[in-house]
Amino acid sequence: MRRSMLFLPGNTPNILINGDALGADALIFDLEDAVSPDEKDSARILVRSAVSALGYAGCEIIVRINAVDTPYWREDLREIVPLKPSLIMPPKTSCAQDVLTVDAAIAGLEDELGMQRGTVRLIPLIETALGVENAYQIASACPRVAAIFLGGEDLTADLRCKRTREGAEIAYARSRMVCAARAAGVDVYDTPFTDVNDDEGLVLDAKTAKSLGFTGKAAISPRHVPGINEVFSPSLAEINYAYEVLEAIRLAKEQGRGAVALRGKMIDAPIVARARQTIEAAEQLGLGGDRA
């Protein structure tokens, strides 16, 4: 279950040592924007040491490397791939070839290290207009892609518009990303909400993302993690409804009925699939409904 992904600057030891205490499902160790060019090497060493020494039990580990058009990304991979992070996040991914370039480099390292190919998966960060338009090709570029992630800040710069609290300027990109990810059968993550002091705005933004179909959302501040987790966890009402759906299906089967209705509404296959997903998520999170 990956509801929240929290960015941790790769060059700040004080934050890195407490990463696993901040409630995020996944931690993104950032070697890119948070780290100035003259600190790239020290950040790599720090992240490597932190991940290998602290372990971060209970958190998925993601590392954002530098983009493929920089001189840093190969060295990032060389340092990070041996740690076997769950995901590597290549930024500024604009086409399938960007993904394949990183894929080939990781495959080479996996062979070199005696790791099984595909151990380390990818979550390309899409943050350009071209990337959004190529979202499906990126999401389906290779089996190593596990998810795609929308970066709203760089995207709005590329679109030449302002980022707003309401987010109308990224509405198209959000929908397009969700559609592309689902078509490719991978997960999809929403851009962080950047106003650290606006708790209400964060919750509204997360609710919008969830309503569009995003799997979860990234955060640049630990203060946003509880809000994101809450929005992306199934609510008690949703869990109870899911149990009611499955119970209605069970009864219908028992009674040999084809069509099933619950509270006057027909239950079809997608509703059943959604109910199963909800219960699976609730079980992973240890949330019980009335019938759990």
Binding site: N18, A21, L22, G23, S221, P222, R223, P226
Partner: peptide, 11 residues
């Protein structure tokens, strides 16, 4: 406090 570690402990 707005310190995230402090808030985790407080919660």
């Amino acid at each position: 406090t707005r310190d995230p570690v402090g808030l985790v402990m407080a919660d």
